[in-house]
Amino acid sequence: MPTPKQMEKLAKTMVNPPAKESPRGPQDPMPEEYWRSVLNDVPADAKPVARSAAPRLSDLPQHVLRVSCRRCERIVEIQKADAVRLYGQHAIWKEVGQRLLNNTCQSRTGRYEEDGCWPAFEPV
């Protein structure tokens, strides 16, 4: 174990040297890294990326869309043209499938946590 004198001497050698650069003032220009980070930053009111990355009805190549329930094993199929007519071409496929199952759900218990179908999206 080092003595207190040795520890003080070691601490003095480990101290970082003082910065040679003077601090920036309000009139000084901002560094390029600052502006790059400001321009690349996502605003707080921006929509989440995951939601926009979800496939929309207009992006799907299939003509018949199928969603099944993992709970009651029911299958609902709809033509893409009908889904676009009912929900719009920019509707998200997972939301449309969930809505289709919920509209005809037969598994109602009365409890919010247990009600509804559990969708499984299948390619046709």
Rank of each mutant, 00 (worst) to 15 (best):
M1G: 15
M1N: 12
P4A: 06
K5W: 06
K5H: 10
Q6R: 07
K9D: 15
K9T: 12
L10A: 14
A11R: 13
A11W: 07
A11H: 07
T13A: 15
T13M: 14
V15H: 07
N16P: 09
P17E: 14
P17L: 15
P18E: 07
A19D: 11
E21I: 11
P23A: 12
R24C: 05
R24H: 07
G25R: 12
P26T: 04
P26E: 11
Q27L: 11
D28A: 04
P29R: 07
P29D: 04
M30P: 06
P31L: 08
P31G: 11
Y34K: 09
Y34H: 09
W35Q: 05
W35K: 11
R36Q: 15
S37A: 14
V38M: 09
L39W: 03
L39I: 07
N40D: 08
V42L: 01
A44L: 12
A46F: 11
K47Y: 01
P48H: 13
V49F: 02
V49W: 05
V49G: 00
V49P: 01
R51L: 01
S52F: 05
A54L: 08
A54I: 02
P55S: 14
P55F: 02
R56C: 01
L57Q: 00
L57G: 03
S58V: 09
S58L: 11
D59I: 00
D59F: 12
D59Q: 15
P61A: 04
P61N: 03
Q62G: 02
Q62H: 08
H63S: 13
L65T: 03
L65K: 02
L65S: 03
V67L: 11
R70Y: 06
R70F: 03
R71M: 07
C72I: 01
E73K: 15
R74H: 10
R74W: 05
I75N: 13
I75L: 13
V76C: 08
V76E: 14
V76A: 13
E77C: 05
E77N: 14
I78P: 00
K80G: 02
K80S: 03
K80M: 00
K80R: 13
A81S: 14
D82R: 10
D82I: 04
A83W: 05
V84I: 15
V84H: 02
V84K: 13
Q89L: 01
H90N: 12
A91N: 01
W93C: 02
K94V: 09
V96C: 05
V96F: 01
Q98T: 11
R99I: 00
R99C: 06
L101S: 06
N102I: 01
N102D: 13
N103K: 07
T104P: 00
C105N: 11
Q106Y: 06
Q106T: 15
Q106R: 15
S107G: 02
S107D: 09
S107L: 04
R111I: 07
R111Y: 13
E113G: 01
E114F: 13
G116W: 03
G116K: 05
C117K: 13
C117P: 10
P123R: 10
V124H: 03
